[in-house]
């Protein structure tokens, strides 16, 4: 186990050390202490390592992640796991706005609540939120899965493309072109796997599925102001 004191040794040294890990590295376990809300902690990783952050972080934690597992034992600021490609990011506390934005792959688990715009423009990432998500979540979501075990705020899935949204609790309102859809056996199967991998104590049958009505794909004069 490598321990890195972020307050004592600085952010550039941390990210440089993590970037230096090759795919066959022996140093697979890293612990970061004293994050104190720092920005850009463990960004741009590309090795199968496990990074544990002991405390809360600021903007863009674990952004652009590939392969690595990053576990934040606190809450994360705006843009956590932004543009993630693969790997796993787990937030034990809450996440601020636009968690998982534009993510292409991998799994983002938020054990508390996520704020507004969770999964905005997601492009293949899987996001599982144990609590609630704020307004405009999955705005323009293109592909991937957003699972919300609690409630969703206003305008869920506004202008959504082909991402799948699963919500267990209430949805305050659906955004433009987002509709409730049938939960078919393949969706229950997919959801069961996601919930299990995310350690969420919920049954797939308790969720409703939402997705695109596909009415915004082509220009329609009725949609113009």
């Amino acid at each position: 186990m490598q321990t890195y004191d972020l307050e004592a040794s600085g952010l550039r040294g941390l990210n440089a050390a993590l970037h230096a890990q090759a795919k066959d590295t022996n140093q697979t376990a890293w612990e970061i202490i004293n994050p104190k809300g720092s920005h850009a902690v463990a960004v741009g990783l590309d090795a199968p390592i496990e990074v544990t952050v002991k405390g809360s972080t600021g903007y863009y934690t674990a952004g652009m992640n590939k392969q690595a597992t990053v576990n934040v034992q606190g809450s994360a600021g705006p843009g956590v796991a932004e543009n993630m490609m693969s790997g796993t990011v787990i937030i034990e506390g809450d996440a601020s706005q636009y968690a998982g934005a534009t993510g292409h792959g991998g799994l983002l688990v938020i054990k508390g609540n996520a704020s507004s715009r969770c999964g905005i423009s997601m492009k293949g990432i899987d996001i599982v939120v144990h609590g609630n998500v704020g307004h405009m979540s999955a705005f323009m979501a293109q592909s991937g899965n957003l699972v919300v075990c609690g409630d969703a705020g206003d305008a869920l899935g506004d202008s959504i493309y082909e991402a799948r949204l699963f919500v267990r609790g209430s949805v305050k309102s659906l955004g433009a072109d987002c509709v409730e859809k049938d939960m078919r056996p393949e969706h229950l199967e997919l959801l069961r796997d996601l919930l299990e991998r995310a350690g969420a104590d919920a049954k797939p049958e308790e969720f409703k599925r939402y997705g695109s009505a596909r009415q915004l794909y082509n220009f329609k004069v009725d949609n113009a102001y």
Binding site: G37, G58, Y59, S75, D94
Partner: peptide
């Protein structure tokens, strides 16, 4: 940002939202 609050007394046990 949360950074602004990290040196307040007892912040580790505070309710943060």
């Amino acid at each position: 940002e949360y950074r602004a609050l990290v040196n307040l007394p007892g912040i580790d046990d505070a309710k943060v939202w």
